[in-house]
């Protein structure tokens, strides 16, 4: 028998008023990702008032409206920058940022690498569907070489970004990748990402069957789901394989989990603010300072 709390989870985390049915196509994996996020939040027992979900534009960008958190649906590509401002003034909040691959890596690529470099405490989820789904299937930064999309009718000639590897190189504290077939693994990675104080990234592969899947005859939604199972391998196995054997495989696993970094917001308040206040006290007597309460 399923535990009681699992069976009622949707009632506690999904909004009751005026938003359903959701906008995603039947067979889309974004709902699976959302489910994994909700279960991770629930497993950690986080207070909904203390959770914010920030998104950009696109299919994944529509995720926050359905959940009963503090939700902010921003402009295309800028979710991480909005979230940076929010996190800095509300350091106690868990700020989850959800983006698609186009949102995070193309128009928002600059913010992506800099948020990771700063190691600001944002839990970032990128749903990688390898296309711009909402606008009808144009090529994105993660579209595979050779793929047919509505803007590459003669085949795609650009190599794709590796999202998780990019985040790791940019300095993220926690990086993991899984697929919407591997739901429990996805949920585990999200739980660990939420527990990480610094910048964490979970890449969830969920190829769009409506656009890029159809144009490339990758099969129906269930067939494409099966391919996520067949074409992916755990990191531990990939490490023992030659580059030729690994080619074309989705490598699932935790790519980075660092404890040697200090989270940006903590560093700001504990180092910058403290230093500035010490300097002030040294220059001017305390009584004349118009100093406000510092968020400790």
């Amino acid at each position: 028998m399923r535990p009681q709390r699992e069976s009622r989870i949707h009632e506690r985390y999904l909004r009751h008023t005026k938003k359903f049915p959701n906008i995603w196509c039947a067979g889309c994996g974004i709902g699976i990702v959302l489910g994994a996020i909700i279960r991770a939040v629930d497993a950690l027992g986080l207070d909904k008032d203390e959770v914010a979900m920030v998104s950009g534009i696109g299919c994944t960008g529509r995720m926050p409206v359905y959940v009963d958190f503090n939700t902010l649906h921003t402009t295309h590509g800028r979710a991480l920058a909005f979230a940076t401002g929010l996190k800095l003034v509300r350091p106690e909040m868990k700020v989850i940022v959800v983006m698609g691959d186009g949102d995070a890596l193309a128009i928002g690529g600059n913010h992506f690498i800099h948020a990771a470099r700063r190691n600001i405490g944002l839990t970032t989820i990128v749903v990688n569907n390898a296309t711009y789904g909402m606008t009808g299937g144009q090529y994105s930064p993660t579209t595979p070489l050779g793929a047919i999309t509505s803007t590459t009718p003669y085949g795609h000639i650009e190599p794709p970004f590796q999202i998780a590897e990019l985040a790791r190189c940019a300095g993220a504290a926690f990086v993991a990748r899984s697929t919407v077939y591997h739901v429990e693994e996805l949920q585990e990675y999200m739980t660990r990402a939420l527990q990480k104080e610094g910048f964490s990234l979970v890449e969830a592969i969920s190829y769009c069957h409506t656009t890029i899947g159809r144009l490339n005859q990758w099969g129906t939604a269930p067939e494409m789901m099966r391919r996520l199972k067949d074409d992916s391998i755990p990191l531990s196995l990939a490490e023992r394989m030659s580059p030729e054997e690994r080619a074309g495989k989705i490598i699932r696993g935790i790519l980075a989990d660092r404890d040697d970094l200090t989270e940006y917001t903590r560093r700001y308040y504990e180092e910058v603010v403290q230093r500035a206040r010490r300097e002030m006290e040294w220059i001017v007597p305390k009584s004349v300072l118009p100093v406000r309460a510092v968020r400790e």
């Binding site: 800028r78 929010l86 003034v89 913010h111």
Partner: peptide, 11 residues
Amino acid sequence: AAVIGAAVGGA
């Protein structure tokens, strides 16, 4: 964007 995010946080 960060300014708007901070304003949403109350600043």
